[in-house]
Each structure stands twice: as structure tokens, then as C-alpha cells.
Computed example of a mutant assay.
Amino acid sequence: MRQGRRRTGATEERGDFPWWLLVAAALAGWFLWRIASDDVYRQVLATLSRGIWITIFVTLVAFGAACLMGLALAAASLSRWLVLRQVARFWTEIVRGVPILVLLLYVAFVLAPALVAAWNWGTGRLGLEPAQTRDFPLLWRAVMALTIGYSAFLAEVFRAGLMSVPKGQVEAAEALGLTGWQRFRHVVFPQAFRTILPPLGNDFVAMIKDSSLVSVLGVLDVTQLGKVTAAGNFRYFETYNVVALIYLTMTVTLSVLLRRLEVRLRR
């Protein structure tokens, strides 16, 4: 019985052979062959490739900022101060209740003008020239919206990971004379990271897909360029095939790498 359990555990540790990845690779190979042999596909790919860097930039900047904000919210939610806990909970619950698309529009057309107005109010007292709302690029409004939206979800991920560390180890580190930052850096976070990594990776993949929502603001990412291209050549089938292929390539590649990292950390 124990031997069977060990075999099952070993199988789970190794993981099943990724037949799904072979099927996905075969489909990707077929699409690449179509792109190489079809002038329409080649033209569409050449046009959409300019938006890949915008998509990557938006994803990396927004996710990095959301991780920092989410970690700060998680620390506040576990603070001994009641005010910090309530502020963190308020932010998390309110932001998580708003759809990302609605939040994107709200930040772009409500919060951004309000920030510009506040800036002008402050600089007006100093005799400086006022800023214009159009001086706030739509790209950075989109990054701000994604950062705010994902910070609430990542706060819960970090909070759960930090709470998974046994209190005895924290108390032992405190008894050794380690400061709060040293306890967090050397004891708490390294152990919590294993718990945090899987949902953190899932949110990163979700961020890549949700970055397509910035197209509603006219940001020239892959999705927006796909809409413009399809509206110009009326080849919707070919255009959106390439759009889907680009997103699938990014998300599947990242998912495989994250899964490999999880297995290595588990060992």
C-alpha cells in the first residue's frame, strides 16, 4: 500500500507526458507554415508584430507594480494596527468587485483627469504652468488601471502565502534577535514563495490576456492592431488567427516555464 502511494507520488512529481503540448506545437507548426506560404498571413504578422512589444511592456510594468502594491496591501492586512487592516480590506474588496474593463475606463476617463486637476491645483500655487489631460498618455492610464485591478487579487495571494508560514518559525527567528525585515527576508518570504508561486504565475498569465483590454483606449497593442488590420483588409479569419497565435505563444510558453519552476522548487 505504501509502495503504491510512493509510486503515485513519484508519478505526480514527474508529471504526465505533455501530449497536449505536442498537439499545441503541431497546431502552431501548421499556423507557421500557413504564415510562411501565404502572403496575407505574412503581411498580418508583420503588422501585428509591432504591437507585441507594447503588450509585453504593459504586462511587465503593470504586473511588477501590482506585485509591489499587493505585497504592501498583504502586509497591511496582517498588521497589528486596526486602521491598516481595515484600509487594506476596503481596497481589496472594492477593487475586486469592479470588472477590469470598467476599472480601465474609470481610471482612463475619471481618475486620470482628477489627478491632472489635483496636480494643477498644487502647481498653480507655485506659479507653474498647468498640465493638460492629454499630456497623460493613454498607455500609462492603462498601466495604472491594470496595476490597481491586479493589486487587489495579488494582495490575497501574498496574504495567504505569508499566513502559511508556521508561527513557530517566526517566533524562533524573533528569539534569535532578527529584526522584522530580517525575519521577512530570511524566514517568512522564502517559505511563502513556494505557496505564492502557482497562483502568482496564474495571475501573470491572466495579465497577459487582460492586457488586450487596453485596446479599448486605442493603445496599439496586438489586439488593437488586429482590429485595425482586419478593418482595413477585411480578412478577419487570417487576422484573428494570427492574434490568437501570438497570445497563445506567450501564455503557453510562460505556463510551461512556470510549471518547470514549480517542479524544481518542490524538489
Rank of each mutant, 00 (worst) to 15 (best):
R6S: 09
R7F: 11
R7V: 14
R14V: 15
G15K: 00
L22T: 07
V23P: 05
A24Q: 04
R34T: 09
I35M: 13
I35D: 04
A36K: 00
A36S: 06
S37H: 14
Q43F: 03
L45T: 13
L45S: 12
I52K: 01
W53Y: 10
I54Q: 05
T55L: 04
I56R: 06
C67R: 02
L68P: 11
G70W: 09
A74K: 01
A76I: 06
W81Q: 13
L84H: 09
V87Y: 04
W91A: 03
W91Y: 15
V95P: 01
R96I: 08
A108V: 10
F109L: 11
P113Q: 13
G122R: 10
T123M: 10
G124A: 15
R125F: 07
L128Y: 09
P130K: 12
P137A: 14
R141M: 10
A142Y: 07
V143F: 08
T147L: 09
S164D: 06
E171K: 08
E171Y: 06
A173E: 07
L176V: 04
G177Q: 08
T179L: 04
W181A: 14
H186Q: 03
V188H: 13
F189W: 15
G201N: 10
Q224M: 15
G232C: 07
G232K: 14
Y236S: 04
F237D: 11
L254S: 15
S255Y: 12
R259A: 02
E262V: 10
V263R: 13
R264D: 00
R264S: 02
